[in-house]
């Protein structure tokens, strides 16, 4: 009887297939000249508010669509549609993150060929979404002032995978001990390439800087746009 224990080599990355789906999605969207932005943040940090501001600022020049993944409620999708752009609500079934095949599903509900930019409002949490490639061309995150300037210390992975960090609720600064310089230093120790943009969705302060960044990155795919 050969009841001896055998060692079988596996050597497989668990998320390798998600990465493959994500890479394919990125490539096919690029071919369609549709830019996908993955927006991540804690609940209530201002994701939907920033999307609404973005629609107000860009929808006359860029054709926008939105995928809402935040919990199974239509509230955010309805807000976005009211702001005047197509939106789909993903059924995440209580999932803590969005992966690339879920994004593929969501995109089926949008006429991607007619869109220049799709923003994915990811599930509100600074932990899980950082581990899943969504197929986005850029990752963005929001940290809002009331959350505190120590978040880069507590959620290093999220800060390390983002291309841009929007610091929202600047208008709240006077009620808070949030130290922007200190936060900046903490973030750069994890990710020296990240672009940091302080804004207030309430007062509109800094929103133009955000729109400028978004125009620049999403314009990469547009041909003959003069950019």
């Amino acid at each position: 009887m050969s009841d001896e224990i055998r060692l079988i080599e596996v050597k497989e990355e668990i998320f390798a297939d998600n990465r493959k789906v994500a890479d394919d999605l990125r490539a096919s969207l690029q071919k369609e000249k549709t830019f996908l932005l993955n927006l991540m943040a804690s609940p209530g940090s201002g994701k939907t508010s920033l999307i609404v501001k973005t629609i107000a600022g860009l929808s006359s020049e860029i054709r926008l669509g939105v995928i809402e993944a935040d919990i199974d409620s239509m509230v955010d999708a309805e807000t976005v549609v009211k702001a005047g752009v197509p939106a789909v609500q993903l059924r995440t079934g209580g999932f803590c993150h969005v992966d690339a095949s879920m994004v593929n599903k969501g995109l089926e509900g949008l006429a991607v060929e007619d869109l220049d930019l799709v923003i994915l409002e990811n599930v509100g949490n600074l932990v899980c979404p950082a581990e899943f490639d969504t197929g986005a061309h850029k990752n963005a995150m929001i940290l809002s002032v009331p959350e505190g300037d120590d978040k880069p210390l507590k959620y290093p992975l999220m800060f390390s995978i983002c291309d841009v960090l929007i610091v929202n609720k600047l208008d709240y600064m006077e009620f808070s001990d949030f130290n922007l310089e200190k936060m900046r230093e903490r973030v750069l120790r994890l990710n020296p390439d990240i672009k940091i943009i302080p804004v207030s969705c309430r007062t509109g302060e800094g929103i133009e800087n955000w729109l400028e960044w978004l125009r620049l990155v999403s314009g990469q795919f547009a041909v003959g746009s003069g950019r």
Binding site: D3, E4, I5, R6, L7, I8, E9, V10, K11, E12, E13, I14, F15, A130, E131, P156, L157, S160, L190, N191, P192, D193
Partner: peptide
């Protein structure tokens, strides 16, 4: 730059 510390990898199995 953060270069390691994330992900899940199956190395091997012990089996009968």
């Amino acid at each position: 730059r953060l270069i390691a510390g994330q992900g899940y990898f199956i190395k091997n199995l012990e089996a009968l």
